[in-house]
């Protein structure tokens, strides 16, 4: 089931939390919401689950309008809210049975379903414990289990890996990837590596607006523009090499990366490459080129560039 948002706006008082956002997520796609705190990620997710009513705009789950038919839309959504609220006084297994019940899972299938999600989320040993006795990571798994209990077509996960240890994070990522093949998933995070590892598509939101949208590669391409090289040249004096590099036609900017090892950052003019020129320069002067590597723009840099003020 596709998720479609059309021109959604939501204001809190005078502040626009979400400002005229439109987006579409297709079945089998995992979309990652990235953005600084207060960018509008959670607000957007709450609106999709119909917990928040937007001021204007339309949201569709498949062909069902969330505004007009929230009960029907909610049946298709599994939701893990921010901070993962749970009935802490209940044992895990009771809690999951309760959730299965109100999600409308048929009575004779509830036990099978509960057993299934307990297995998928790796909480078999904890199933008889009270939720309040669990560690944060296990609570997070219970939250995820609760979202999966009715086999929803759409999964909305607000920061699904907070509080998990690195092993658990990898497990949950794998799980999300597996689920994401057949279902539509939106997850939010501010851990960039995580979004890159799990999501097919990344959307960066800042101040209620979508500022970037695409695969990790596409985002890099957009931000990169010009080639960046890391060059280490030996057997020459630092100043001479610096000058030599700067005088190349294709080079826009040269910077010292590490003076002790004579490493430079070379930025080429847009659309041009300086690799040949650097090599020829070394040959001409009898210097030894020990390193010539591309510098990939990291997602962090794109993120900072797009979301930092001025």
């Amino acid at each position: 089931m596709d998720i479609v948002i059309e021109n959604m706006t939501k204001t809190y008082g005078r502040q626009k939390a979400v400002d005229n956002i439109s987006l579409q997520v297709k079945t089998g796609e995992v979309l990652g919401f990235l953005g600084p705190n207060g960018a509008g990620k959670t607000t957007t997710m709450k609106a999709i689950t119909s917990f928040l009513i937007p001021d204007s705009g339309k949201i569709f789950i498949g062909n069902i309008s969330v505004n007009d038919n929230p009960q029907e839309a909610k049946k298709n959504i599994g939701y893990l809210p921010e901070n993962n609220p749970l009935y802490e006084d209940m044992p895990v297994i009771d809690y999951l049975q309760f959730c299965a019940g109100i999600e409308g899972v048929a009575k004779d299938k509830i036990n099978d379903k509960v057993r299934e999600v307990i297995q998928t989320c790796g909480i078999t040993r904890e199933k008889h414990k009270k939720i309040s006795e669990l560690s944060k990571g296990y609570k997070q798994r219970v939250g995820l289990a609760q979202a999966l209990i009715h086999d929803p077509e759409v999964l909305i996960l607000d920061e699904p890996t907070t509080g998990l240890d690195p092993n658990q994070i990898v497990e949950i990522r794998e799980l999300i990837k597996k689920i994401g093949k057949e279902k539509t998933v939106i997850l939010s995070s501010h851990i960039l590596a995580e979004v890159e590892a799990t999501c097919d598509r990344i959307m960066i939101i800042n101040k209620g607006k979508i500022v970037a949208d695409g695969t990790a590669e596409e985002l890099r391409g957009q931000a990169q523009g010009s080639e960046m090289l890391k060059v280490t040249i030996e057997d020459g004096s630092l100043d001479e090499i610096f000058k030599g590099l700067q005088l190349l036609n294709t080079v826009e900017l040269v910077d010292f990366a590490d003076k002790s090892t004579q490493t430079f950052q070379v930025k080429s003019k847009p659309g041009q490459s300086s690799r040949r020129e650097v090599f020829n320069l070394c040959v001409k002067n009898g210097w030894t080129l020990t390193q010539l590597t591309f510098v990939e723009t990291r997602l962090e840099d794109i993120f900072r560039e797009l979301t930092l003020e001025n």
Binding site: F51, K74, P85, I102
Partner: peptide, 14 residues
């Protein structure tokens, strides 16, 4: 207080 109301109201119930 605990936020579970969000959990409850995002289930298919009114």
């Amino acid at each position: 207080r605990s936020g579970t109301i969000e959990l409850l109201l995002t289930k298919p119930i009114s």
